[in-house]
Each structure stands twice: as structure tokens, then as C-alpha cells.
Nucleic acid binder design. Structure first.
Lengths: 271, 271
DNA sequence: GCGCCGAAAATTGGCGCCAATTGTTTTGGA
DNA sequence: TCCAAAACAATTGGCGCCAATTTTCGGCGC
């Protein structure tokens, strides 16, 4: 206690630079650049979150399904706290809704919100195709061609892989745009529009007109920005046109159909 | 136990319609439309979340500040669990970062991410001004004029109210667009760009060139879509131009400046 | 004097228990 | 026979405690 050490040590500290505030102020220790953090926690690769998300994107979890904490904990082999955190995270992302003392449910958008989601997607994805064309390089072309080949080779034998493929096309375009913020927004909107589609789709229709993707991809490869934007916009409008507002009667009807089909990854509860 | 009641009652239930699955299937109770929910939980109006958010938008909480759970609980007069949930929510929104066993910190964007945020804002807000012009009605005009008058009457005596006013302009435009999804995205981007600005701003510069807002508002009122989009884009580019990438040296310098200025809502620890 | 190393303090993470609320069933009455 | 009210069961919400990790403080050796 020789020098002036009367400093309140709890005012405001910068995070990534650990606490070299007073301890080592003149020189950096040895090999720590400065802004470096060992492990920024990412809720996205939580197994519970991933499980629910993939189940939703594969349409194994329908909007309105109750997600009980205890049940999920047993089904996924974890404790209730992890499930709680995962559900809270998904609620923040508006993928599930939580009602006080009632539990969490897969989010079911309203019809108006579904329309707004598609409008937002048109905005975002028009921007991503434009940016993708702007910064398209050899590597990006290779990625895009590879994906188009994969999508063309899909025989639609497995419905879930086909769903993933068509979703990956839009994600790839957003990745080629090179803007992580827009990419996250596009990802989020795709998830939420899949919920909207699952809510308002007419039974028996395919989700995404797959024939549009090669056209859009070709226009991107040709760097025809205006045409690519127009094609993407029309493609999204096509998807939107496949959903219809549905009244309570249809909901009840489908609910009975659900009970007939059963399944739904039935978490073994039989006696 | 008269009729067939051997139904596994935990397969998939629709959330908002309560559980009238089997109980009352033929007729709806009395006065409950169908899709109705009493209280969908919204983390946004949690007092802890609101407190941290307003503190951030008022720049009383700087990027990198540690948000200790126990400290926040005492400061806000709640328990640690509420703080935990609030921090987890803010981490999902990328407003705070959580490191395992180290705590939560106000998010500090990287320089690249800051650029990407502004690019995303240009995309989103160009869309919102366009939509706002499209669906501009008498009520919207009144709201816009009222806000412009309020902003013009601001004497900039209180820095925090001025900050809120300039932010409210962008929010109002997004509200006039009538798309809640885009509105939420705009809100989120504004919060995160405020973090980016707080991270990379040059000291002493104002945040938002306030003179641009009347021009944009006038163009919206005149329904000149192209000019309004251009003005909004240039306005956002102006804001972006005010931030500069900063190296570690500058950070350390400012850190010492912080310690000189002190303050920072010093959580009384003297004695 | 400087840096490395070990022990104590503080903070976060996780688990179990119990209260509170909700939904369901049973019971009583008109 | 049908509706209403109360008891029961199940689920969520919250609090306290304890383990695990990090940060800090003190001491030792160079």
C-alpha cells in the first residue's frame, strides 16, 4: 500500500480486455492482442435450441404445440433448467410464446404478421441478392454452382432433406452477401416464415416452388442485378400466394386430423 | 367413464385455444372467439430489461461495461433470477454478451459488424420510408408533423431527451410503414447501432445530424419516394461517417479518461 | 524490482425443493 | 340431465443452497 491505491474497483470495466485496468496499464502481458475473449456464449448451438429449431424447420413441430419443460427435459436427456433457458431464448426470438404459469408453445403467427414477414423477406432478400451480385467472386460462384447442382440432383425422396435444400438456397444467397447482420435477419425470417407457412398452408401443396431457384441462381451468376431482384421478389410472392387465411373451423378440422394422424414424435407416455 | 375416454392427453395441443380439444369440441364455450390468449409474456416490458435498455440508449451504460448479477439485483431492487433472465434475453438480442463463469457485458460490436449494422439499417429504413409514403394518411401526416414540431422545438438543453427525440424520428417512420416485423428490426438495429456509435465515435461529435430529419420528413409528407429514400440513405451514411475504427491505444486512452471523469452512475462503494 | 505461483474471496452455474397458478376431474344441487 | 362449485392433480415460477470457475490478493523466488 505504497502508491495511491484508493481507487473504487467497481465502476466500469471493459470486458474483453480482462482487467488490466490498473494492474498492467503500461504494457500488454505477453501474447494477448487485446480484444480477445475465450468463449462468447452462443445460445444457438445449445443442443436443446438446435433440437427444437431443426424440429420446427423440418415441420415435425407444428405451430401451437405445447413445449412442456419436464417433458422436453426427459425427451432431450437434460435438466429442466437447460430447457427453461432454451425456451426463454426461443421466446426472445419469437419462435415460441410463453404464457405465465401455462408454459411455452411453438409460435403461431397471425395472418397479418405472416404477411408482414413475407414483406420483410422481400426487403431483406432483395438486398441480399443485390449484395451477393456485387461481391460475387470465384469462390462464391463455386459455392452457388455447387448448391444448384445439389438442388438439381435432389430426387425429393426425403421430404426433410428437400426442405433443408430449398432453405439453404436462400441462406447461401444471404451468406454470399457478406453481411452477417443481414444474414442473421434472413435466417430469423426464414424460420419465422416457415412457422407462418405451417400455420396457413393449404394441405398438400409444396412449400417452395423449386423451379425458381435455378433461375435466380443463373441470374446471380450472370450478375444481372435488376432481374435477379425481380426474380427473387416474384419467387417470394409465389410462396406467399400459397398460404391462405384460415378461420376457426378449419383449425378445428385440422386439429382432429392431427389427433387421427397422431405421431408428432409422441413422447412415449403409454401406460 | 361412459364414453370412449382412452385418449392420450399429451400429444399436441394448440396453445391459444386453451384446451377445448376434447372437453368442448362441438360448441365453443360462450364468449371466447377462439384464438385468444390472456397474457403473452413480453420480456420487453420487464423492468430490468427496460432499465438496461434505456441506460444503454441514453449512453449511461457504455459497451464493455460489466453487468454483475448481484450488483444489478441490488441496484434495481429485484432478485438475482430476474436479472439472470433479463440478461439472457438481452444476450439473445445481442445487446449484451455472456461469457461462461465470467458474467455479462454490454455488447461491443467489432468494426466490421458496425459497418454491417449501418448497411442493414440503410436497407431496412429505405424500405420503411418507402412503405411509410405508400400508406401515408391524414393521421400519419399529423403524427409526423407533430414529431417534427417537437424536434424543431428542442433546445438541446437536455442531452438525453435530444437523443430520444432523434431516435424517435426513425422509429416513427418505421411505425408509419405499418409493418411490425420491419418495425421490430428497425428498433433492434437502432439499439445496436447506438452501441456501435458508442464504441467507435470520436469524442465530442453529436450523434445524429439533426438537420437531416426535417428534410426527410418534408419529403415524406410530399410523397416523393425516391428523394426520401435517397435522403434517408445519405442521412445514415452521414451518421456512419462519424465513427472511426479505433485501435487498442485509443481504447486504453479512453479508459484512463473514464477513470478521470469517474461518475458512470458510481454504485456507491466508498467507505 | 519484476514476474511467477499459490491461496482466499467473489461470482457465476446448477440442482432441488416448495409455493402459486392453471387445468381437470369429481361432487353436489337445481 | 345439465350446470355450477369445489377439491385434486399437474405444471410453472421462484428462492436458497452448494459446487465450479474465475479473479484477486499475498508471498516467494529470481
Amino acid at each position: 500500500m505504497t502508491t495511491t491505491r484508493a481507487k473504487p474497483r467497481n465502476v466500469a470495466r471493459t470486458a474483453p480486455a480482462r482487467s488490466q485496468a490498473r494492474a498492467k496499464l503500461r504494457r500488454r502481458p505477453v501474447a494477448k492482442p487485446e480484444t480477445e475473449a475465450p468463449d462468447p456464449r452462443r445460445m444457438d448451438d445449445d443442443p436443446v435450441v438446435r433440437g427444437i429449431l431443426t424440429a420446427i424447420s423440418q415441420k415435425r413441430l407444428k405451430p401451437g404445440t405445447k413445449l412442456g419443460e419436464d417433458r422436453l427435459a426427459r425427451a432431450l436427456g437434460t435438466t429442466r433448467i437447460h430447457v427453461r433457458q432454451a425456451l426463454a431464448h426461443l421466446a426472445s426470438r419469437k419462435i415460441v410464446v410463453q404464457f405465465p404459469n401455462r408454459g411455452a408453445f411453438v409460435y403461431r403467427p397471425t395472418w397479418e404478421e405472416a404477411r408482414e414477414m413475407f414483406a420483410a423477406r422481400r426487403v431483406i432478400e432483395a438486398a441480399t441478392v443485390a449484395a451477393a451480385i456485387d461481391r460475387l467472386d470465384k469462390h462464391g460462384k463455386a459455392l452457388l454452382k455447387a448448391h444448384m447442382a445439389r438442388e438439381a440432383a435432389d430426387d425429393r425422396s426425403d421430404r426433410w432433406t428437400s426442405l433443408s435444400l430449398t432453405a439453404d438456397f436462400h441462406i447461401l444467397i444471404a451468406e454470399l452477401a457478406g453481411n452477417h447482420v443481414l444474414l442473421d435477419m434472413a435466417r430469423e425470417l426464414m424460420l419465422r416464415t416457415s412457422l407462418a407457412i405451417a400455420t396457413f398452408e393449404q394441405p398438400g401443396e409444396p412449400d417452395c416452388s423449386p423451379d425458381s431457384h435455378p433461375d435466380i441462381g443463373a441470374l446471380v451468376l450472370a450478375r444481372d442485378k435488376a432481374a435477379a431482384i425481380a426474380a427473387m421478389t416474384h419467387h417470394l410472392e409465389d410462396i406467399e400466394r400459397r398460404i391462405q387465411p384460415r378461420d376457426a373451423e378449419a383449425e378445428v378440422d385440422e386439429l382432429t386430423a392431427i389427433f387421427k394422424d397422431l405421431g408428432v414424435a409422441a413422447a412415449r407416455h403409454d401406460g
